[in-house]
């Protein structure tokens, strides 16, 4: 679905695609959260519920040849990049059939073949890796004689922009004019700490000026707004015009960890309800129906099909083999003839 950004008005196909990706993320996450609370999915899950418009609005512009790096809240990015539910649930369950053969779990879920260079348990670790991928894209375009470059998109939160690694990556991307689009998912909190308590600016896009790159702000609850802002930035990057910082203002509908959280009080019900009233999927469905792109029944059919896929995928994951402890040391190193 690349090269959509010429027109500022999304086609019907794009509008449906945005919807499909968001619905897939929402249901995947809600079911994953329940499975964690039932004890079927070990460890901790950081859910993307509420932020679906960001991953979907960006990913519509990317192909498997474009890379992303993700965060600890990474399921949504992989779903939006075409992740298969079967292999995702299998990974969350620690099964051999998972994307990472059960070696990574939620916080490292990846699909390198589709350019998804991993969720990451370390805040701001993704941007430097995305800069490396973008360097490859520029290098390979040069030696293959291509004008258009593949693009690398690091996703990160407001909290990550306080890490030195983010700063180093942004500076390197700018000085080398690499094909990177830095997508900040500003959900107003670094874990449990409010943005105003962790940085003295409210607009992270302001930081772009310090690196000599454009910074833009969009409504991260509106898939079309994200699609538009990301499209322009990705087009610039593809054409060799360098990086952009795109800040998407969004909100997490569930807690930092899990569906019902760990009982910490750091935000009010009123604030949560105000953001829930701007639910990105509900807003988008209203638009689809008003524009006559889809009927209510067609919208419902998308939800039903996604839920059916989820049910089959959970069953697949639950019935998948566990890794063999005898294989524990596999893949620490790439095997070579010498070793």
């Amino acid at each position: 679905m690349a090269n959509t950004s010429q027109a500022m008005e999304p086609s019907e196909e794009v509008l449906k695609d945005l919807h499909f990706r968001m619905v897939r993320i929402r249901h995947f996450e809600e079911e994953a959260g329940k499975l964690m609370e039932q004890g079927k999915s070990p460890g901790a899950l950081h859910l993307y519920i509420g932020e679906e418009a960001v991953a979907s609005g960006v990913m519509v512009h990317l192909s498997d040849n474009d890379q992303i790096t993700s965060t600890h809240r990474g399921h949504g990015h992989l779903v939006a990049k075409g992740g298969e539910f079967k292999r995702m649930y299998a990974e969350l369950f620690g099964r051999e059939t998972g994307y990472n053969k059960g070696r990574g779990g939620s916080m490292h879920i990846s699909n390198v073949d589709a350019g998804m260079l991993g969720a990451n348990g370390i805040v701001a670790a993704g941007p430097p890796i995305a800069v490396g991928a973008a360097f490859s894209n520029k290098y390979l375009a040069r030696i293959e004689g291509r004008d258009q470059m593949n693009v690398a998109v690091p996703f990160f939160g407001d909290g990550a922009t306080n890490e030195g690694a983010f700063h180093e990556a942004a500076n390197m991307a700018a000085v080398w004019k690499l094909p990177v689009v830095f997508v900040c998912e500003n959900n107003g909190f670094g874990e449990f700490t409010r943005q105003e308590d962790h940085q003295a600016i409210s607009d992270i896009a302001d930081r772009a000026a310090g690196y000599g790159m454009p910074g833009v702000i969009c409504d991260g609850m509106d898939a079309v707004a994200v699609w538009e802002a990301a499209g322009e930035a990705i087009e610039r990057a593809r054409n060799g015009e360098g990086p952009t910082l795109v800040e998407c203002k969004t909100y997490r509908f569930v807690d930092h960890v899990g569906l019902s959280g760990i009982g910490l009080h750091y935000r009010t019900d009123e604030e949560l309800e105000a953001w829930r009233a701007r639910d990105p999927i509900e807003q988008h469905e209203k638009r689809l129906i008003e524009l006559g792109v889809m009927t209510q029944d067609e919208v419902q059919a998308v939800h039903d099909a996604v839920m059916e896929d989820i049910a089959e995928s959970i069953e697949f994951a639950e019935n998948s083999p566990l890794p063999d402890p005898a294989d524990l040391l596999n893949d620490v190193y790439t095997p070579t003839a010498a070793s």
Binding site: Q67, T69, V112, L117, A125, P127, P128, I129, A130, V131, G132, A133, A134, F135, S136, N137, Y139, L140, A152, G164, A165, E168, A169, N171, M172
Partner: peptide, 15 residues
């Protein structure tokens, strides 16, 4: 940090 990140990202994508 940027230098090692560059190596990780470039190494994982073919260089």
């Amino acid at each position: 940090s940027g230098i090692i990140g560059l190596a990780v990202g470039a190494g994982a994508t073919g260089l």
